[in-house]
Design a binder for these strands. Structure first.
Lengths: 243, 243
DNA sequence: TCACATTTGTCCGTATGTATC
DNA sequence: AGATACATACGGACAAATGTG
């Protein structure tokens, strides 16, 4: 294993597969900003000709970039083609869901991580919250209330509350992780949506959190949130347990 | 957009591309546990025949799974082939690094997130720490001391300290995120490694954190860690700023 | 050491569906 | 409606790598 040492003199020569080199070249152009989201890549045939590889090789490279969330092919045919985008957060989210499905992450770990990240978000939010954030938060709880008045549960909107809250942290890394975990929760909850009664309890807690945030009461917001998550996570454990 | 409603009767018919269906089929087999890490997939030609698609289609599907970290092809030829694995955490880490390189995440966000996650880890660690954890932590600082005695800086080992600490949280989601952020830091630091002097200061702080953890002193450990990160993050900002 | 089978890596040519003008 | 542009998919072929006898 000595040859695996990173500063070994005899590290492997350029040995990678052709499509890996192609993918790397295009990826570099994207992350360096020479290609920006929305830019259209040349047609596959032209790419193949300019890179001096076959079309199959180009296509395999594009599949890697596509899964990375760096390109997509929304339309075929004339005027269509492969387009640059930046969907890395969505890709990460999808991978979290996969990891959960593979049981390489446990429900306990999920609920623990969620609670601590939401606590962390509240600490950030209290310091960085602006009027627009408060407007969004209250709009979310109001929407849940409207749904409840119409007699339907609002679990998806309740989950959205936590996304809106995550944005208040003004930190996109925290937001990204919080969102990924929320999507995992969503993937569990879609099987067995909560009852109207549970949804009402949830929005009451959410409103209490917003009220505490409004008066910059960190401890109050934390306390309400943790009690809320205790209830919700108990449901999640139950749903995940019987599947 | 009414047709996008999930419970619409006339949702789109099976319209995805062929390689996406192939990739999904294999992925399902992996996440459902019918294929386990280490299992060998059938040869591409056999897969193509059994799925009734061309080999090109199979290969494009494999490239998606490969980027997801679900398969790899370590060897070609006889006895080689595509093998199942679970490298989702590594894939997520790589995507964080990409996102950082694309400037879609800022250095401020990185240092903020890192500090709060390390604080979170310490809170978990104080409650869940066992003797083996303490042994690993002290072994890490001792290794840095040895390197310093030999006159070389130990920044890579210092980063490893945070990885070891993350494991003490006993939560693989937290560990995964912490590790991803550490890799981003590593990718910044490799350009301009810290001086021996800075490395010594770092290990002193690390030792103080371990001492506090040993006596289950949460506030002490937090305080040492936050002061430590303040110094380190200042360096990171400086390095990242002049690139 | 030398064939030999296996399996991936890569290329070419062709046909087809789809979207734009 | 027809021509054009482009991705999707198929088939066949050969090179290169790897393990086996």
């Amino acid at each position: 294993m000595a040859a695996d040492s990173p500063d070994d003199l005899f590290y492997p020569v350029e040995n990678r597969r052709s499509f890996e080199r192609v993918s790397e070249r295009i990826k570099d152009a994207i992350v360096d900003g020479r290609l920006k989201a929305g830019d259209r890549l040349p047609p596959e045939t032209e790419l193949a000709a300019r890179l001096d590889v076959s079309r199959q090789t180009v296509r395999e490279a594009l599949r890697m970039l596509e899964h990375a969330g760096l390109v997509e092919t929304p339309k075929r045919g004339s005027g269509g083609g492969t387009v640059v985008r930046n969907a890395i957060p969505e890709t990460i989210t999808g991978l979290f869901v996969d990891a959960m499905r593979m049981d390489s992450l446990s429900v306990d770990e999920l609920t623990d991580a969620r609670a601590s990240i939401d606590a962390l978000i509240i600490r950030f939010a209290v310091e960085r919250l602006d009027d627009e954030d408060i407007r969004r938060l209250t709009e979310n709880t109001a929407e849940s209330r409207r749904l409840h008045a119409a007699g339907v549960e609002a679990s998806m909107n309740d989950l959205e509350f936590h996304r809106v809250l995550a944005r208040c942290s003004k930190n996109r890394i925290i937001e990204l992780v919080a969102n990924a975990l929320l999507c995992v929760v969503t993937s569990i909850l879609t099987r067995t949506p909560p009852t109207l009664e549970m949804s009402i309890k949830a929005v009451e807690r959410h409103e209490a959190v917003v009220a505490a945030l409004r008066r910059r009461d960190t401890e109050g917001a934390l306390s309400e949130m943790l009690q809320h998550l205790e209830v919700v996570d108990a449901e999640i454990v139950q749903i995940a347990g019987c599947s």
